[in-house]
């Protein structure tokens, strides 16, 4: 197991680690010293999200009006999802300006793209929860234990 290098210097803050994990998949793990794990998480989650966008097209995949609650799952991916949403919005505005142009993906490409991007967002939510648990474990390990707790641990 890779030793968390940051724990030796200062104790990581859980909200900051969660924020980093939301900003970029794996950044929270990178910050607490789990660098190889962070690289794998970043590559897999980012590829899944942009793979979904490539399959369904950015206009259909990240759309708050057409995809219902999936947008909430996609937004768990952070700024990448916001960029895709903004790009999709500009395409929808182009469609409004010129009704002869359509970027809307037909079934099933659009639905597959939505599911890919949504699952990528949910996986990042899992990664955020994992980084919170790891920070908690690091902080617990570094925290001095009260003498009564030590006695109980010795007796059990």
């Amino acid at each position: 197991m890779a030793k968390p290098s940051r724990a030796k210097e200062t104790l990581p803050s859980a909200p900051l680690a969660a924020l980093f994990a939301w900003l970029m998949p794996g950044l929270g793990h990178w910050w607490i010293g789990e660098k190889p794990r962070a690289i794998i998480l970043f590559l897999v989650i980012t590829t899944t999200f942009w793979g979904g966008v490539a399959v369904g097209g950015v206009r259909s995949v990240v759309s708050e009006r057409e995809n219902g609650p999936w947008i909430a799952a996609q937004m768990c991916l952070g700024p990448q999802a916001l960029i895709a949403w903004q790009a999709g919005r500009s395409l929808r505005e182009r469609e409004k300006a010129d009704p002869t142009v359509s970027f809307k993906a037909p079934w099933p490409s659009g639905d597959i793209g939505v599911i890919y991007a949504g699952v990528a967002g949910l996986l990042n939510l899992l990664v955020i929860l994992d980084v919170l648990a790891r920070v908690e474990r690091l902080n617990d390990a570094a925290r001095p234990r009260a003498p009564s707790t030590l006695r109980k641990a010795a007796n059990s």
């Binding site: 399959v55 097209g57 993906a105």
Partner: peptide, 25 residues
């Protein structure tokens, strides 16, 4: 990113594999 990829027939079922693989990894 702007255009979509057309998926037909058994391709719909095959699209399950990369998704499951990424969830597993």
């Amino acid at each position: 990113l702007v255009n979509w990829i057309e998926i037909r027939g058994v391709g719909r079922l095959l699209m399950l594999i990369p998704l499951i693989l990424s969830v597993s990894i």
